[in-house]
Design a protein around this nucleic acid. Sequence first.
RNA 1: GGUUCCGUGGCCGAGCGGCUAGGCAAAGCUCUGCAAAAGCUUCUACAGCGGUUCGAAUCCGCUCGGGACCUCCA
Length: 496
Amino acid sequence: MTSLKVHNSYTRQKELFTPITPGHVGMYVCGPTVSGESHLGHARPFITFDVIYRYLRYKGYKVRYVRNITDAGHFEEEGRQAEDKISKKAVIEKLEPMELVQKYTNLFHWAMNRFNNLEPSIEPTATGHIVEQIDMIEKILSAGYGYVVNGSVYFDVKKYAAAYPYGKLSGRKIEDLLETTRDLDGQDEKINKQDFALWKAAPPEHIMRWNSPWGEGFPGWHIECSAMSTKYLGEQFDIHGGGMDLMFPHHESEIAQSTICNHHTPARYWLHNNMITVNGKKMGKSYGNQIMLTQMFSGEHPLLSQAFSPMTIRFFILQTHYRSTLDFGNEALQAAEKGLKRLWDAYGELRQLDFDPSKNRNLELENTFYTACRELDESMDDDFNTAKVLAGLFTLVNHINSLKSGVLERDTMSAECYAFVKKQFSAYLEDILGLQDEHAAERGRLNQVLDLLIEIRREAKAKKDYATSDKIRNQLQRLGILMKDEKNGQVSYSFE
RNA sequence: GGUUCCGUGGCCGAGCGGCUAGGCAAAGCUCUGCAAAAGCUUCUACAGCGGUUCGAAUCCGCUCGGGACCUCCA
């Protein structure tokens, strides 16, 4: 097997992946902020890193995959709006923050499930790690890189930058950051504008609040990831992942915090997925162009021409390299839907292909298969190029269909080769890319019913009673089941 | 304004110096009672202009166009 290379955002280079502890990988991925519903854009990192997680396991690594739930601190605005409304209308409809958090956490898990994302090894919550975050802040204070103002604690970026390469990950220079003229909350409390909050004193109307050495408040955004990654993966771990839009300030701040506490950068490899765009613009709240996952699945959105299944979306996302932007479009999604179906149909064929080793082996054909299979590994090893993997699978699809249709002579492949192809195809389609048969639940007893219909139809056709045979096929099609008369006289069916 | 990325055929997208991915769409053919599926074939592109090179979608420069980040953001 070839060796894995990954694009490290920290060095901006493709590097050979070498875990700190041989055979083991620690991976931290920034999880969702559960203050609202997830949209299509949110699906990308979780599918991307799910495939990375799966591939690392496929390569034999023991992986500890930590993905947090951000359930504290950032509801400031929402909280305030809610407070305003409440103060106007009285107090009755007040939402308990944890109620909100629970609701959206459940919804998030539901979506992850539908995408067939494996569960992370640990899914820590920010609210469950207030103590660890306070500890870390105290460490930073005693190291002299933080300061307290009015019950809030800030990180002294300027001092840090004098000693460490601040801005390396995001390619930012501290002087440039001084240029920024934004009125941020608490800006007047900071010594320098580029300082960021480690802990914020809670104003009276702020609902989520905890006791701390500096008074009642809540943790800053960046500290939770530093605290939780350190706790579960150690002072330095292998992979840190997330969306590109988190590089600054989030990941840059994480690096600063961890460097002060643990004396080195938290992660060796920083992996960032690119954005999903709509008409070239990033999907996001500020553009008002986001499509919620529930809407994707139901088709209820002005931008959607139809509903798209979780697997179609997964396939759609994997058809592009994770570091490229992916433009949303109905046509593209429809193409993904059809392509995915083709893939599954061929996979079904592959599993049914028989072989007869007694016939002359077509070594050239075997070689084609072996090469195509080997290239799958090479593509994944090249910074997880799932687009190339899919292209590779489609060349296999073409060969499989050729065997089926007789363009390539069947029964000329050795059992050994056949088994290998079958194993690779299944490993990639199901285990690594994590695609699953969305109609599996419909099969089972339905298959037996269909077999009966096929039998009846066969009898009708034998009597040239095409009215009956067409009726069966047409009615089934209306139910989303395609019945196909194969060349060899067999009848097959597939689900739309 | 600063930093940075990108412009590939009707659409979506790989590629990162030579071997002109792939999916979808379109057209023709084969197969078929008719379909569907599949196979075969066709359409063969790299924003523009220069330069480097035996050779560039791929490297360099300029021009045009579009993003992303600098604020919460996947």
